[in-house]
Amino acid sequence: MLDFQGYGPRLLEGAWLTAELALASLAAALVIGLVVASAKSSRSLVAKSVATFYTTIIRGVPDLVMMMLLFYGGQIGINMATDALNAHLGTDWFINVNAFAAGVVTLGVIYGAYMSETFRGAFLAVDAGQMEAARAYGMSGWLAFRRIRFPLMMRHALPGINNNWLVLLKSTALVSIIGLSDMVYVADQATKATHQPFLFMVPVGLGYLAITAVSELVVLGLKRRFDTGFSQAT
């Protein structure tokens, strides 16, 4: 039996945190991606410009820089806001930026930009007649999105989403620099204390592989779901 020298439980906790962080960030990135993709394909010039500005900035700046900017910059921004409020109201508020929330926001904001491009391409790949029929039968915008556009678009978006998700998962390792004890952070500490990098880093690698293996299964199921009506062509 491998002896993790007392780091075993913390390593597991770290793996759990990595999974939680990755899934929460994925959810945030998907929502942001959909909203931004819709903004980009909207008729409003303002919405289009804001969305394009956002994706240009995010995709051009390293994740690590972005994370530090949002974490430290976010804290400073919130401090300034609470200070101003305190001065006005005579209160003594202080909001500490939660590192997990900061991680989710950062990863969500970064990967939302990539997701938006994936979604935009997928929206364009859906035959316009499908949405026209939805409108012609009296569907509201939301109903048509939910019943027609989204399921048709997902077939095209799924490979891109999967790609982004795998990169996102591995980017969660960056959160150790803002003080979150994900599995990389724990393994790094353990390695420094024990000088046994293989003992800790190999399990971490396997941990990521385990998560991606499970996610491949989920993606396979989703692919089958969204291919309905297309794979059965005569």
């Binding site: 035959d127 007649g129 499908q130 026209e132 029929a133 939805a134 409108r135 012609a136 039968y137 009296g138 569907m139 509201s140 027609i148 399921p151 048709l152 077939r155 969204f226 309905t228 009506g229 297309f230």
Partner: peptide
């Protein structure tokens, strides 16, 4: 939307929803 649901349209390209 209410009016559209009372006037059904048949398209040149059929436009049946492909995933249903």
């Amino acid at each position: 939307e209410r009016i559209r649901s009372r006037l059904a349209m048949v398209f040149q390209g059929f436009n049946l929803w492909a995933h249903m």
